Amino acid sequence: MTGSHPYLVVIATISTLVSPLSCQNVSSGETGTKLNGSAVDFDSFREHFHRMYEVNGEEFNRRHLNFQNATKRHAYLNSLSTAPQSAKYGINRFSDLSQKEFRGLYLRASADRAPLFSGLKTEGLPAKFDWRDKAVVAPVQNQQACGSCWAFSVVGAMQSVHAIGGSPLAQLSVQQVLDCSFQNHGCNGGSPFRALTWLKQTRVKLVPQSEYSYKAETGICHFFSQSHAGVAVKNFTAHDFSGQEEAMMGQLVEHGPLAAIVDAVSWQDYLGGIIQHHCSSQWSNHAVLVVGYNTTGDIPYWIVQNSWGTTWGNEGYVYIKIGGNVCGIADSVAAVFL
């Protein structure tokens, strides 16, 4: 991706931070509270997150500068998020990364253009719906320092749809997709749509994670015989639901959790709450799994599973306002059929 990201430009302007371009719950809110109070300093951050760099060494000074820049960003982001349920931004485990480092490590998804959705809206949708309530969503995973979000979103959708069809919920191998989806680039990034196209065309069966464990690095593809048990993709749909998020709600209810590609630059600093600002569309860089929605409160929101572990955000989840295509949540959305 080239050009200047609008979020980065705004932050550079506001906090005099020059940001180059760059795939934790309100319980991490507990972390945020401890580290964002009057006693906040770099020492307590290093102690809390077990950072071992040598005091006053080159890396220490660089990380300290990143940390100081992060606190400036948080002040700006929180100044615009004043409603009670609004997103909160603060210190988390990414706070000593520059924005360029964060993008390079975690935001490695690419989006292939999806056609505008032209189907009918589903009538009579419930006011709230969450596939987790039906015990068909696997626990939050942690991609670690590997740009594998594209694979996690695809595998998350597959294992949920498999469980919705009546099979026991089982975690499938993300590493198998990472190693074998030849049109993608492993830990250096990829596209959920290209991964789904590969799965559909080859009819490769994903094996359980217990048979092909996650390594957080790209490895050599392991092949299994056609008789080996696993889960294969029959088909998938990919659409742009911008301006039609109610139709996207219908797809979620009818077909299961959806793989979506979003702009997650501001998520480096997210602690919890509903994101309503600081997120652009058309700058896709991260893949996630949309598992539900809630329209009963003042701010309707999507419930989105991320792959950065349970200590990030709302126990590994992020809430994004419905309407306005916040974070580009509706730009590129895939439903899986097994």
Rank of each mutant, 00 (worst) to 15 (best):
G292V: 12
F129N: 01
F94D: 01
G186C: 13
A260S: 13
K205Y: 14
A83R: 04
Q175L: 09
Y214L: 07
T310A: 12
E54F: 11
P84E: 02
G230D: 05
V326F: 02
Q251S: 09
W312I: 03
R62F: 14
S213G: 12
L258E: 05
S160K: 02
I275D: 00
D133V: 08
H277D: 05
L172R: 06
S213Y: 13
Q209T: 12
T311M: 07
G165T: 11
A75S: 03
A12H: 08
L35T: 00
A87L: 01
P300E: 02
N56P: 02
S173P: 08
C221L: 09
C180T: 03
E58V: 15
A109W: 00
A247Q: 01
S160L: 06
Q143E: 03
V291H: 09
E254D: 15
A157F: 05
M52K: 14
E217S: 12
V136I: 05
K215V: 15
L178T: 12
A163T: 07
H277T: 10
H74Y: 11
V336Q: 06
S242F: 01
L252V: 06
G156T: 10
L105H: 03
R46I: 07
L196I: 08
T33N: 15
I91Q: 02
L196Y: 11
M158C: 10
L125Q: 02
A259P: 06
A109L: 02
C279S: 01
G243P: 03
N188D: 13
R132I: 12
Y89W: 09
A195C: 13
M1Y: 06
V40T: 13
V290E: 04
G292P: 09
T13Y: 13
Q68H: 02
S15H: 11
Q159V: 12
L169H: 02
G316V: 07
T197L: 11
Q99K: 08
S242C: 02
N25A: 15
G272V: 06
K215F: 14
E54P: 05
A138P: 01
Q141T: 12
F224W: 13
R46W: 05
T122E: 04
T31Q: 05
Q175G: 10
S284I: 04
C327T: 05
Y270W: 00
D263Q: 04
S22Y: 11
S167G: 03
K200C: 09
N235I: 00
L206M: 04
V265D: 00
M248D: 04
E245S: 03
G37Y: 07
A83C: 04
K200N: 12
Y106P: 06
G3T: 10
Q183G: 11
A330W: 03
H228Y: 10
N184Q: 08
Q183C: 09
Q99P: 10
F67I: 03
S79D: 01
G166A: 13
L178C: 12
N78Q: 04
C279K: 00
D96T: 09
A87M: 02
Q176H: 11
